Amino acid sequence: MLSYVVAVSRNNVIGKNNSLAWRLPDDVKFFREKTLSETKTMIMGRKTFESLPKVLPGRKHIVYTRDKNYKIDDPNVEIIHTIDEILPYAKSDQEYFVIGGGEIFKMLFPYTQRMYLTEIHENFEGDTFFPDYDKSQWKVTEKKEGTIDEKNIYPHTYLTLERV
C-alpha cells in the first residue's frame, strides 16, 4: 500500500528551492515517527532524495529517476526508473511511504490509499506544489491540532486520510 507523508501549506506549497518553505520541528518529528523503522521504506523522487542531508538511518530509500546512470552506493538505497517498478509496492499489504516531491505525488495519486497530511494554515512562496485532488474521495480518520510554541510558530493540523 502506498501512503503519502507530506506537509502542505494553505496554498498547496510543499517546497521551495529543493527544501521546505517553513520551519516546523514538530512536523519533522511526526515525519520521523511515521517513517522510522528497519521495516519501513520511503519512495521519493531524485530531487527529494538529494535534498535530504544524508541517507536517513533506519529506513530503506527507493529513489525514482529517469537518469539511467544515477547511482548511489548505499545498501539502503534502491534506484528505479519507471512507474512500473513502483506499482508492486502499491499492491502490497505492507505500507510504503511516498515522501515527495510534487512530480511523484502527482504520478502516484491514483495508486495511493492513505495520506498522513500536515496542513499548515499559512500561505508560503514556493516552487513545488502538492497536486489538487478530489477531497470527496478521501475520509479523515484521524485529526490532531499541532502545538504552537516558540519553535513551531505556524498553526498546523495533522490528518490521516483514507481513500473511500
Rank of each mutant, 00 (worst) to 15 (best):
G126M: 01
I62T: 06
Q113G: 07
Q94F: 06
K34G: 00
G146N: 07
D73L: 13
L36I: 09
K34A: 03
V63N: 13
L159T: 00
R10N: 10
N69V: 02
V98W: 02
I43P: 02
S92F: 04
P131L: 05
I99G: 01
G101H: 03
Q94V: 15
H61V: 10
F30I: 00
E95V: 15
P75N: 11
S9F: 08
Y154A: 06
Q94S: 15
G101K: 05
K139H: 12
L52H: 03
I148Y: 04
E33C: 04
Y133F: 15
V164G: 06
Y154F: 15
A90T: 09
N11C: 07
I120Y: 00
I104Y: 10
P57N: 08
I148C: 07
S3L: 00
Q137D: 05
E103F: 08
M107C: 11
V140M: 02
K151V: 05
K68M: 06
N12C: 11
D84C: 11
K34L: 15
I43W: 01
T141H: 09
Y89C: 09
Y89S: 07
Y111L: 04
K135N: 12
K60C: 05
F130I: 05
I104N: 05
K71Q: 14
I43Y: 03
N18P: 07
T160I: 14
F124G: 12
I80A: 07
V98T: 06
E50M: 13
K106C: 07
M115W: 00
E85F: 07
K151Q: 13
Y116H: 10
F31S: 02
F97G: 02
I72H: 05
G45Q: 01
I80E: 12
I80G: 01
R46F: 12
P155K: 12
S3E: 09
D127V: 08
S136V: 13
E119G: 03
F49S: 03
D73Q: 13
G101Q: 11
G102P: 09
I72Q: 11
V28M: 14
D93A: 13
K71V: 15
F30P: 00
F130V: 01
K139N: 09
D27T: 03
E119W: 02
L20N: 00
T48S: 13
R10D: 08
A90I: 10
V77K: 00
F124H: 08
T147E: 15
K106L: 10
P155L: 09
K91M: 14
V140P: 09
E103K: 14
I120A: 04
E50C: 14
Y96N: 13
D26T: 04
G15M: 04
I86F: 00
F31C: 04
E145R: 11
Y70Q: 04
E50S: 14
K16H: 02
Q113P: 01
K71N: 14
K60S: 12
P53F: 03
K40W: 00
Y158M: 05
L161P: 11
I104S: 08
V140E: 14
M44T: 11
I14K: 02
K106H: 04
K139L: 14
V98Q: 05
H121C: 02
H81G: 12
K106I: 00
W22Q: 01
N123A: 05
F124D: 08
E125N: 11
M42L: 09
T112G: 08
E50H: 05
I14H: 06
D67I: 06
T141S: 14
E145D: 15
K135P: 12
A90W: 01
R163C: 08
D74K: 01
T39F: 12
L161C: 06
